[in-house]
Computed example of a mutant assay.
Amino acid sequence: MPHTQVIEQLKASLQTAYRQAIDADARLDELKKAGHVKFDTIFSASEGFTTKSNRFTPYVHELAAEMEGFIQEPESMAKGLESYIPKLGLLLQTMQAFQSNSK
């Protein structure tokens, strides 16, 4: 698959993640107002993210910045995807589980 197709697929996945993150963060805000949010970060450093947040959107922003790096330096894409894809998958899976469990 040429780099442009990979980038387009990653952009589509990231857009999906962003929309889900907005909804999930709104739900987290509701839960926080009700006194149920008692954690500092969603993901630990061992999961590959450098961001530390109790909301999903900052993690999406981190992945968007990484993708921008792929666009700027396509030769780094192959190595970068090794860590990017698992993080994107983890983010999407975690948001899906959160949305399913918080209804």
Results as ranks from 00 to 15, higher is better:
M1R: 14
A78V: 06
S53R: 04
D29C: 09
F49L: 09
L91G: 04
E82K: 15
A45I: 02
T94M: 09
Q9R: 15
S44R: 06
K33I: 03
L88D: 00
E47H: 01
H3Q: 15
Q72D: 02
I85L: 12
V37M: 05
P58Q: 07
A24M: 04
E73F: 06
G69E: 08
A12I: 07
E68H: 09
Q9M: 15
E30T: 11
H3E: 15
F98P: 05
E68N: 14
P2V: 07
M67N: 10
G80Q: 10
L63K: 00
Q93V: 07
G48Y: 01
A26Y: 00
Q9G: 05
H61C: 04
K79M: 14
E75F: 00
F49T: 03
A97Y: 08
Y18K: 08
F43V: 01
D40R: 13
L31E: 14
F49Q: 07
E66Q: 01
G48L: 05
R19D: 15
T51D: 09
K11M: 03
S100G: 02
F56A: 10
T57K: 12
K38E: 12
I7H: 13
Q72R: 13
L90N: 11
A78E: 15
S83C: 02
T4S: 14
D25Y: 06
K33E: 15
A65S: 10
R27Y: 03
Q9N: 14
G48Q: 05
P86G: 06
R27L: 01
K79R: 13
A97S: 13
L92R: 10
R19N: 15
E82H: 13
S83H: 12
S44V: 08
T50E: 15
M67S: 00
S46E: 10
R27E: 05
Q93L: 12
Y18W: 10
A45D: 11
K38F: 11
D25L: 04
L92P: 11
E66C: 04
S102W: 05
T50W: 14
L91R: 08
V37N: 01
P74E: 13
L63H: 03
K87W: 06
G89V: 10
E30P: 01
D25F: 05
S100H: 13
L31P: 04
S76H: 12
V37Q: 03
L14S: 03
L14E: 09
K79D: 14
F39A: 08
L10P: 10
F98I: 02
H61E: 11
D23F: 02
F43L: 08
Q93R: 10
T94N: 05
F70G: 07
R27F: 06
N54H: 08
A17P: 00
S83L: 04
E30I: 13
T51Y: 01
Q99K: 14
M77K: 09
Q20C: 07
Q9V: 04
S102D: 11
V60G: 05
I7L: 12
K103R: 14
G35A: 09
F98S: 01
A17N: 00
D29R: 15
H61L: 12
Y18C: 06
A45G: 05
T94W: 08
M77E: 02
F70Q: 05
A78M: 11
E8M: 07
E68M: 02
L63P: 09
L88W: 05
K79C: 05
Y18M: 11
